Amino acid sequence: MQKKVSGTLLAIAIPFFVVIIIPLFIVTLFEVALRIHPQLIDQEYVNYVFGKQTRRDSGIFEYDPDLKIYFMKKNFYTTMYANGYVWDHQTDARGFRNPTAKETSDIVLLGDSFVYGHGVNQDQTLAYFLETKGYSAYNLAQQGDNAYSEMYMLSQYGLFLKPKYVFYFYFTNDIKDLFMRGLDKEQMREFIKQPMESISFKESTNKINFPNTLSDKFYIGKYLKFRKLVLDKKKKSQSVDTDLGWKFTKKAIEYMAYISKQNGVEFVMVPIVKDTFEDYQILKDFSSEHNIAFVETLDMNNENYYLQNDGHFNEEGHRKMAELIETYLQTH
């Protein structure tokens, strides 16, 4: 009888051990390994784990699903991480990376992560260096911004500051970012067909963010979300239509120049040159054709101006760009 009971318990215990205990042990081991050394996956996963470029409670963004635009949270402080670089992120009362929310500014800066100051502190950015040169500058740039969101920022926030100059900074990933976060293709085509005078933007009234979940507390949970994000990005990347993206971006540039001129503001094109001469020439020719002011930036094609293993401006890159902007202001 005792042998029969022991045999029955053993018959139950072995499947339990195989189905429950061993997988639980493996999962726990994987969790511990990722906590100790998240680089076991890759650097992109590390960026995901420690980065804050999300629309969750702990992230820097809110999202308006009606406008399809990301907005940085107002008066928000956190420590940022990407590719081994750590920096302080602090926004003003409007949600932009400035010490204070100015009421007026002679210069407004539009751009993406380069102008925002990815990888460096605020006192190492283009806006800061322009201020130290005696210019009043306000930074409207956000990570991931593109011609669509930049149009919105200029029309809703930039012109309110009554600037003398709007400097629009373009980088080659702006085309791709239109498709990664922005309007769908049909909305792009509709925008391209619109007359300038009929284009308008409504105020954002539906900004949302997503609460952190239990899975966010575990590195395995983060890994599963990371894998899904990678697949989603890959799928979106396959939908990129470069020709459509350029048509939309050019129309957006025309519109920003149009509303700037209506408000007595000089709109200035600034291409960020980093092995992107084709884009540089496209924008130079386009600016000439449409009588848009243009800053020569070929001097920026120097690896000493960029963060190693990252590609964004380092402190010297921001300082050099400020010098180029100052040269433009002094000669125009």
Rank of each mutant, 00 (worst) to 15 (best):
V18M: 08
V18G: 07
V19M: 12
I20R: 04
I20A: 14
I20Y: 11
I20C: 15
I21L: 11
I21H: 03
I21S: 00
I21W: 01
I22G: 05
I22D: 07
P23K: 12
L24P: 01
F25C: 14
F25D: 03
I26F: 14
V27W: 05
V27C: 14
T28E: 01
T28D: 03
L29P: 00
L29A: 13
F30Q: 06
F30H: 06
E31G: 13
E31R: 13
E31A: 12
E31H: 14
V32Y: 01
A33F: 07
L34H: 12
L34N: 08
R35I: 15
R35N: 14
I36V: 13
I36S: 01
I36G: 00
H37C: 03
H37K: 15
Q39P: 00
Q39K: 14
Q39D: 08
Q39C: 00
Q39R: 12
L40M: 14
L40E: 00
L40S: 05
D42G: 02
D42T: 04
D42M: 02
Q43G: 12
Q43F: 07
E44P: 01
Y45H: 06
Y45N: 09
Y45W: 06
Y45G: 04
Y45S: 08
V46R: 10
N47Q: 10
N47W: 06
Y48G: 03
Y48V: 07
V49K: 11
V49A: 07
V49E: 03
G51I: 06
G51Q: 09
G51C: 05
G51P: 03
K52T: 09
K52P: 01
K52W: 02
